[in-house]
Simulated assay, not measured.
Amino acid sequence: MINNRVVKGSFKTSALLMLALTGCQTVNTNPSAPSERVPDAQPAIFIGKAPTVDDLQSYHWQLSGVNTYPNSTNPPPSDHLKPQIDNHKVTLDFTQNRISYSVGCNQLSSGYRLQGDKLQASTNAVTTLMDCGSLQQSETWLAQQMQSQSQLSMMIMSWQTHAMLQQDLADGTALIWDGILKPEVKYGKGETVFLEVKPKWQYCDNVTDRKCLEVRDINYDTQGLKTAVGQWYILDAHIINYRHDESAQRVLRLTRYRTPPTDTKGYGSLYQLDSVIETKTLAK
């Protein structure tokens, strides 16, 4: 069993844990890359509510715990699911009309209906077709749970950058999701850019031991033909959802958001990965 000892129907333990963590919250999106600090000028205050569709789709949700109780009839396959939870691989996202979720293998998506605090996803889920190996059991379990009716309770931190969602399932299990406000909600509409990324990490500066990516700007025309290539430079900024390794040189399609002085020292940029559009594998 995976059990964080959260009282069913209550955020008591989880909220206290989040209060301890969010006095000065650090978000790391790249190994060895600089961390983004969430402002800590005010104490973390959680506001409980039944979520609306707008609330749900404003956050990217990561599963932080599964709580089973004596009346749970379908406990999760903890041997395979727990490592995915620990590595933030189990995710949930909402749009106005669809819900999508994953245990770190296939992406499953279906329509859903929210009536008050009751969530009902449709049973005809669309999925990618990767072979999940040992994760197949966890993926099947999550799909079964998401396609049954559940009850939602949400708590939003006072400055709204983080939230928590408790999903009580029909079989007596509760899923606890941590929500991070999506960049497009926090910063407004971003712009599409393309960066080529060198495989090897570089030092960000001559003072610290922080490491950054070495990149250059790529421009394409409306037909997708490359029109300009910039000079290489050190990118001292986050790329959300990008996991770098040193085995290949890549061209990334990104959304770039302008960030205010409260988030960085002066105006800067935050990047989010849309897709990898080109990969050059290095010869061994």
Rank of each mutant, 00 (worst) to 15 (best):
C105R: 02
M130D: 05
H60L: 12
D205R: 05
L16H: 14
H162F: 08
V229Q: 14
G188F: 11
I99Y: 00
M154R: 00
D221H: 07
I277P: 04
K186W: 05
L152H: 03
Q160A: 14
R256A: 11
F11R: 03
I240W: 07
L195V: 06
Q231A: 12
P51C: 01
C204Q: 03
L270T: 04
W141V: 01
N106M: 07
V197K: 06
M164S: 05
D79I: 05
S134D: 10
T29P: 02
H238E: 15
I239P: 04
L92Y: 02
Q167E: 12
T22D: 10
F46M: 12
H244Y: 12
M157N: 13
P34F: 05
T13L: 01
L273N: 04
T255P: 09
A174M: 01
R256L: 02
A283C: 03
I156V: 14
G111M: 11
R243M: 12
L81P: 05
T52A: 10
T22L: 10
L181A: 14
V276K: 05
P31W: 07
V90R: 00
Q202G: 10
M157E: 15
K182V: 10
L142A: 01
D221K: 05
A15I: 13
A125G: 04
L270R: 00
E36Y: 04
A41I: 05
V193T: 03
R253M: 08
Q96P: 03
V53M: 03
P83T: 08
A248T: 07
G224H: 02
E36A: 07
T173Y: 02
A174P: 01
R210V: 13
W159D: 13
L114S: 01
S109P: 08
N4M: 08
I47Y: 14
A121P: 08
A121F: 02
Q25D: 11
M18Y: 12
N97C: 08
G266R: 04
D217Y: 14
M154L: 09
A228P: 01
T52S: 15
S275G: 15
P77W: 01
N4K: 10
D93E: 11
W141Q: 02
Y59W: 09
N87T: 10
M18D: 11
V38Q: 10
A143P: 04
A283K: 15
D274C: 05
S158V: 11
G188Q: 12
A170N: 08
T13F: 00
L21I: 10
Y112W: 06
Y101F: 07
L114Y: 06
C212T: 05
I218W: 06
G190D: 06
L16T: 14
G190S: 09
V251I: 15
C24R: 12
E139I: 00
D40M: 08
Q115L: 07
T13G: 01
I99T: 06
V27N: 06
G268R: 04
I156A: 03
Y203A: 10
K49C: 00
Y59C: 04
R243S: 14
R256V: 10
L135H: 07
M154Q: 05
L135K: 05
R253Y: 03
N241V: 08
E196S: 14
P70Q: 08
L56S: 00
D205W: 09
V185M: 13
